[in-house]
Write a protein that binds this DNA or RNA. Structure first.
Lengths: 233, 233
DNA sequence: TGATGTGAAGCGGTTCACAGCC
DNA sequence: GGCTGTGAACCGCTTCACATCA
């Protein structure tokens, strides 16, 4: 075990391992080797061993990892042994859908409140969570002990919402707005860009068309200079 | 310009650049340097130049990049110069929310259809898209010329849905089910794991508690061996 | 014997630094 | 002079290979 900085790639994988281990547990499996885990999600066994070894010696040589014990360890490492309370800013379609999604994914994340500025939405219920006025964000955060924020507002509001969220003392933020938020130290900001995800699929489609279809990729170098010059208008 | 394999990290960034360039364009900005772009989203300027240089010499030395021209180039590279037609499998809360989201993000992705197996949902409208019976997936895909699929079903159905989607000839798939899908060559599968995203925030919170609070990180090595042994039960 | 834990090697992506060009 | 395009250096993550231990 080292006292190195743990990469986010590692913690992401821990969360994936955990899901798998829970399934194994429900199937009554007692122990599992890194090799077995590796081919569930197509990863390398050494990677799994390294990820786990950062945090301690959880395995037993010649045997593997005991499923129940490992679940406990990973849960504790990820801080999933205690409940987190989530506030979702933006009670539009996306915000309410996320509220639902997380509500039913019976995890340690409880959606405690939604926030919006539109008066027609304020006061409505969404499952068990009420929609509050975003102008009272700080107060509600304190009262409901919210420690995680999800931003689900249009891009042009995102930076301002982010500022207010940080101001209210929230340090962990999941952002769904397609905006390049300027973050700060000691604030964990994670952006999920739904448009981006589709566009990168589009690139793949464009590539396979080119290779299946007529022209080979990028044999157009000569043209480029002219194009750039022309763009000057 | 090289004829190397382009990393997905690069294409993701291209999509981010594109959004920024469109904004600049709407502000009437004519040209922009890699340095200016770099501090919009806090990136390194060399990175931006490299990303672009993979595809051609779009810049002008001493000047920068012409905004309009670069928008055209990136759009073409990402295949956003033509429309894509999306089918969403799973007409639950998440599926319909995504349908809405993509419908209003006036991009080149048109949600052409949703799919479900629940008879109460089949035939209903969702914005402009109808919910079809998933059992007729292949037919509808062909008829509506769908080329991108979004999987928004519970985890336990995901692998089977994935199989059917591939069978119908779809090669680009965005998956929201928290399941480790086994993919194939020539199929582009991208998974967005909403639970995962929150759990990695949780790790961050757990860390900052430890450092702010009592114990320093991981001074518990000695305990570990005992714990592992005990887990054997 | 069989699987872990881990230095060392390998690899891919980012940053540096500067030649080349406008 | 200023900014791009790019080889070289750098850095961090992944994979290898093997000593270690139940």
């Amino acid at each position: 075990m080292k006292v190195e900085k743990i990469s986010e790639l590692t913690t992401n994988r821990l969360s994936v391992y955990l899901r798998c281990l829970r399934e194994l547990s429900s199937q009554g499996v007692l122990s599992v080797s890194s090799d077995e885990l590796a081919d569930r999600f197509h990863l390398h066994s050494a990677q799994i061993r390294k990820d786990l070894a950062y945090f301690g010696e959880f395995g037993v040589r010649g045997v593997g990892y005991y499923v129940e014990g490992l679940i406990d360890h990973i849960s504790k490492i990820l801080g999933l042994d205690r409940e987190h309370r989530v506030g979702i800013i933006g009670a539009g379609r996306l915000g309410t859908a996320l509220a639902d999604y997380y509500h039913f994914s019976h995890s340690n994340f409880k959606v405690a409140a939604l926030f919006d500025t539109e008066s027609s939405k304020i006061g409505t219920k969404n499952g068990e969570a009420t929609v509050y006025d975003f102008r009272e964000f700080s107060d509600v955060v304190e009262r409901l002990k919210i420690d995680v924020a999800i931003i689900a507002v249009p891009a042009n509001f995102a930076q301002e919402v982010f500022r207010r969220v940080v101001q209210a003392g929230i340090t962990a933020i999941l952002n769904f707005a397609p905006a390049p938020l300027k973050s700060e130290v000691n604030i964990k900001l994670k952006t999920v860009d739904l448009t981006n995800s589709l566009e990168s699929l589009s690139y793949f489609l464009a590539q396979s068309e080119e290779t299946n279809g007529a022209g080979k990729i990028l044999n157009v170098r000569a043209k480029r200079k002219r194009t750039a010059a022309k763009n000057a208008k």
